[in-house]
């Protein structure tokens, strides 16, 4: 899923400015709900906080809330289409995809991002998420024992570790596991260590961001 982190209240308040009377805080019910950043609960909490803030300041505002299933589908955005049009500004607590999709559906509206979109990750503990994939567009997990060197090695090395790791920890930070040690341990368990000697060609980064913004069409379903 996409993991997000809510921006600090001060940043949000500064971003919103003064030039509005009504604000809709729009949550997203999928990924960022799971990462406890932009779901219904966070939307309500932020609304309460902003109401107190503007109340104390003496600014008369209307702050409404709503959370849709997914902001990355027009179908769900349209559930609150009228509400969006009724408010001066929108604060989206979806990931960057959701924010832009709102903008696309409501081109006349000012939409602010309430989250920082962090990464694609998994839940690794209570209140903890970790990056597992960068979306390189050409999956190579088959050759690395199911541990991604692109996402989990700080240098995205494909032909083995650098010399900087110590005690299984990355040279960048002791909190980061050396991705290559994870690959090594996994291949050892699978009795596939010899595969570490296979030369891995330079990756074709065109499938990643380096080929420009990506688009996918499934011809079976696509309606021109």
């Amino acid at each position: 899923m996409i993991v997000g982190q809510q921006k600090k209240a001060e940043e949000i308040i500064k971003m919103l400015g003064e030039d509005w009377d009504s604000l809709l805080i729009a949550g997203c019910g999928t990924c960022v709900t799971v990462s406890l950043a932009g779901g219904e609960r966070e939307v309500e909490a932020l609304a309460n906080l902003l109401k107190i803030y503007y109340g104390k300041k003496g600014k008369k505002v209307t702050i409404s809330t709503d959370t849709v299933t997914r902001q990355c589908d027009f179908e769900f955005i349209d559930d609150i289409g009228e509400k969006i049009e009724d408010h001066d500004v929108i604060l989206s607590l979806a990931c960057g995809v959701g924010v832009q999709h709102l903008v696309e559906r409501h081109p006349q509206k000012v939409v602010f991002p309430g989250l920082n979109t962090s990464f694609y990750g998994a839940t690794t503990g209570v209140g903890e998420w970790a990056e597992r994939c960068v979306g390189c567009g050409e999956c190579i997990l088959d050759r690395f024992g199911g541990v991604c060197p692109v996402a989990r090695c700080s240098k995205s090395l494909l032909n083995g570790p650098c010399g900087g790791a110590q005690d299984g920890k990355c040279e960048v930070d002791d909190d980061i596991d050396c991705g290559w040690e994870l690959i090594y341990n996994r291949l050892k368990d699978l009795n596939l260590l010899e595969s570490l000697l296979v030369f891995e060609d330079p990756k074709d980064w065109q499938h990643y961001r380096d080929g420009g913004p990506r688009k996918l069409i499934n011809k079976e379903y696509y309606n021109e």
């Binding site: 083995g160 900087g164 030369f199």
Partner: peptide
């Protein structure tokens, strides 16, 4: 190429040296 005789895990580091020479 460079090699780190003190890097961990030993075997994986050694394999990388072999790979560098093979390359």
């Amino acid at each position: 190429a460079a090699a780190n005789p003190f890097g961990d895990p030993f075997e994986m580091q050694m394999m990388k040296v072999e790979k560098k020479i093979e390359a």
